[in-house]
Every structure is written in structure tokens, then in C-alpha cells.
Simulated scan of single mutants.
Amino acid sequence: MVIYGVARLAFCYLVGQLAGELLGRLIGVEANVGGVGFAMLLLILLNDWFARKKRTNTLTNSGIEFWSQMYIPIVIAMSATQNVKVAVSSGFIAILAGIVPVLLCLSTIPLLTRYAKSKSVDTYGNYNPVP
């Protein structure tokens, strides 16, 4: 059902926001640090896990697909409300908290490329070996 996809996305969003708030407090920044990013990573991992277990269907995927199309406008709206000036003036750790995840993501691209060449997933979450 579509609602399962939306529920999965909502769960990931809430967990991601909590992780972002916790990370912000741990590094001493009065802001959510990467909450939406954590949510999207968790959603990717959960979708992959459900696809491997064959526990997903077309309607569930359509609920996730709907919100994935809304992702960019939501992120833009959320980032517009953040106070970048305060984050930068908070010190080096705030800048480091932005640079390190970007570098980590860039370093995983070759790994993901090799993995994508070995397996392919269709729009329904089914694995198809690449010829």
C-alpha cells in the first residue's frame, strides 16, 4: 500500500532528525547537523533491505517515489530556514561537520559504481543481474 511507503519515509525522517539533533549536541552546535541526510541514507538502506527480503511491492514503492519527487523542494525549504551565519561563526567544528560528510560521500562513489555494475534493481525493487 502507498501508506506503507509514506510510513517508511516518515520513520526514516524522524530517526534522521533525532540523529541530526544528537550529533549537533555532541559537537556543540546548536543546530540539527545532517538530519535530512541521515534520513535519506536510512531510507536507502531500508529500501535495499526490504528489496533483498522481497518485502516490497509496487504500491509501497509508489508512496516512496511520491515523496522522493518532493525531496528537492523540501530540502530547499528546510535549508532556507537554517542560520548559516551562526553555524559558520560557531567555529571550526561546524565547518568540519559540513566538509567531512561531503568528503566521505565523494569517497564512496567508486565503491557504489562497482556495486552498481555487479547488480541492478528494477523499479519494483527486484534484483536483476547485469549481463
Rank of each mutant, 00 (worst) to 15 (best):
L45M: 08
Y115Q: 03
G20Y: 03
I74G: 00
A80W: 01
E21L: 05
L41Q: 03
N61S: 09
W67M: 06
N83L: 04
N126M: 10
A31R: 04
Y13R: 00
Q82M: 03
M1F: 07
L45D: 07
V88F: 08
I3M: 05
A19N: 08
A10H: 04
L14S: 01
M70R: 02
L23A: 04
S90M: 10
L14D: 00
S120N: 05
S107Y: 06
S107I: 10
N47M: 13
A10W: 09
P101M: 02
A116M: 15
N61D: 04
Y124P: 00
S118D: 12
W49A: 12
Q69F: 04
I72A: 07
M70W: 08
R114W: 06
M78R: 00
D48A: 09
E30V: 04
P110S: 07
T58I: 07
I3E: 13
A94G: 12
V121Q: 08
V33S: 05
L45W: 15
C12E: 08
E30W: 11
L112T: 01
Y13N: 02
K54W: 01
E30G: 15
I109D: 03
I93Q: 02
V2W: 07
L43V: 05
L41S: 09
I109C: 02
F38T: 00
T58P: 02
T108P: 00
A77T: 11
M78G: 00
W67D: 00
L106Q: 10
N47Q: 04
K53R: 15
Y13W: 09
G35T: 13
F50L: 13
Y124G: 14
G28F: 11
S68M: 10
N61H: 05
